[in-house]
């Protein structure tokens, strides 16, 4: 898994590439919590290049969302599709997280 962060005008885009599972979820958590600690309270997670997400990966998303919520921040998920989308749907995460079709959409909605 690789994580790239890019600061946009009103939010920070976190792009995850590869697999988000029990092994990589702690890395993701650490990276995002660092962002939050640094004061980035509007995050967009870009799932465009994510191949696979496991339950541990979902938990990682929950942990960071909860942290963000505690500080009055916001997170949106962009480009959730394919098997990742299936996992989101089955687990009910699709109805908990705010999902957008593109990073541009997310940016527009956070504006």
């Amino acid at each position: 898994m690789e994580i790239q962060t890019k600061k946009e005008a009103n939010a920070t885009v976190v792009t995850i590439t590869g697999r988000l599972d029990a092994v990589t979820a702690p890395v993701y958590e650490k990276a995002v919590i660092e962002l939050i600690t640094a004061g980035e309270l509007k995050l967009i997670v870009d799932f465009d290049s994510l191949d696979y997400i496991s339950s541990a990966g979902l938990r990682g998303l929950l942990v960071t969302a909860k942290q963000l919520k505690g500080k009055g921040g916001q997170v949106r998920c962009a480009n959730v599709k394919g098997t990742v989308k299936e996992v989101f749907d089955i687990s009910g995460f699709g109805s908990i997280f705010q999902m957008d079709d593109s990073v541009a959409d997310s940016l527009a909605k956070l504006a």
């Binding site: 979902l58 929950l62 909860k66 749907d89 089955i90 687990s91 009910g92 995460f93 699709g94 109805s95 908990i96």
Partner: peptide, 27 residues
């Protein structure tokens, strides 16, 4: 609660159940 849909095997064959996906248990 967010679990994979089970399969049903009856006279009509084998198929995935269609069910409402509730949110996972716990958070």
């Amino acid at each position: 609660a967010g679990h994979n849909p089970p399969l049903i095997m009856d006279s009509g064959g084998v198929r995935y159940m269609t069910l409402k996906s509730g949110f996972v248990l716990g958070p």
